[in-house]
């Protein structure tokens, strides 16, 4: 294979592998922009993956499967929102618990479904006309998933919402300074609930994509740590939906290469690659210092209570 083909196929596969990362990261960006860290992404993705597969397999409708995954992810996130926003529990502990819960629950329910290929996966699409463009066609427009394109559109939509609309000002203010928003009559709790639930919905879709499109089957633990990469990516992309595209494609490429390079490098080492990269990336973000860290929402991780003595 020539290097052009290598490059083309790597980017094409990076998009496919980056899709669940993109959806998950967009969700986590919104949750964290409201001031709530949700470490439960891995669990919500697992729940999404299982419920999408189960529904798609029983109804023969993969689209419905994705929809149900979104609802299930949102439901899981609702637990996190209730614990951290209403009861003001520690966000990190609650998120870790949600991951354990999601992985365990999907594993338990999924026992009978293990290892069966999905009968009707979501079909891959090839964009007419655009697919015929040399290089760019095969790179971006052949055999891709509709969810990939929806994710790209969603990233732009969420960026516009965040920076150019009334809702965006409200969401960002709640994450930066909830007391300020409260003093102006904004319902801080409602905003946080909605943002966390949206995060769960998007993580659910990310999981559903894995089981009905990327690898149309169900295996326990098939999310394989992607939820944790999402957490790192959220920091790496500085809580910016559009930058999330670049981050997701970069890590998608690393995932893909960890298979591609197997003839030459030990697979155990390759499997480490995305995670090692996440550590390196976070180290660079840290070294990048004040300038970069300014992206972090000011009240991230802090439960809000109106200042009654």
């Amino acid at each position: 294979m020539g290097w052009e083909e290598w490059l083309i196929s790597t980017i094409a596969r990076a998009l496919a592998y980056g899709t669940p990362l993109l959806w998950g990261t967009l969700g986590e960006v919104y949750a964290e922009r409201s001031g709530v860290v949700n470490l439960g992404v891995e669990g919500m993705m697992a729940i999404g993956a299982f419920s999408a597969f189960a529904v798609a397999q029983s109804t023969g409708n993969p689209g419905l499967g994705i929809l149900v995954a979104a609802v299930a992810g949102g439901g899981a996130a609702l637990i996190h929102a209730f614990l951290t926003v209403t009861l003001r529990a520690n966000q990190y502990v609650s998120g870790l618990a949600l991951t354990m819960f999601g992985l365990g629950l999907s594993g338990l329910l999924g026992r009978g479904w293990e290892g069966v290929p999905l009968k009707h996966p979501l079909p891959a699409i090839t964009v007419p006309y655009l697919a015929d463009i040399p290089i760019l066609g095969p790179m971006l427009f052949q055999n891709q998933s509709i969810i990939t394109y929806l994710g790209l559109v969603l990233a732009v939509v969420l960026w516009v919402l965040l920076y150019r609309t009334r809702w965006g000002i409200t969401l960002r203010s709640v994450g930066e300074s909830p007391a300020t928003a409260d003093a102006l009559g904004v319902n801080v709790y409602l905003v946080r609930y909605l943002a966390v639930i949206l995060g769960g919905v998007l993580a659910g879709v990310a999981g559903g994509y894995l089981s009905v499109e990327y690898r149309p089957s169900w295996t326990e633990g098939m999310t394989g740590g992607m939820g944790w990469i999402v957490i790192a990516l959220t920091i790496f992309v500085a809580w910016d939906p559009v930058q999330a595209i670049g981050g997701a494609v970069l890590f998608g490429a690393l995932y893909h290469l960890s298979y591609r390079l197997q003839p030459w490098v030990a697979p155990e080492l390759l499997k480490l690659m995305p995670y090692a990269a996440a550590i390196i990336v976070l180290a660079f973000v840290g070294l990048g210092g004040a300038q970069r860290r300014r992206g972090a929402p000011g009240a991230l991780g802090v439960p809000y209570a109106r200042g009654e003595k």
């Binding site: 150019r164 009334r166 000002i169 960002r172 203010s173 930066e176 300020t180 003093a183 102006l184």
Partner: peptide, 26 residues
Amino acid sequence: FKLVYPHTVAENVALGLQGTPFFGPA
């Protein structure tokens, strides 16, 4: 002060304000 420090002055005033357009309230 109850201000959102990373935001602009206009964004701070627009926060929670009724009757501004959805797009580009600032």
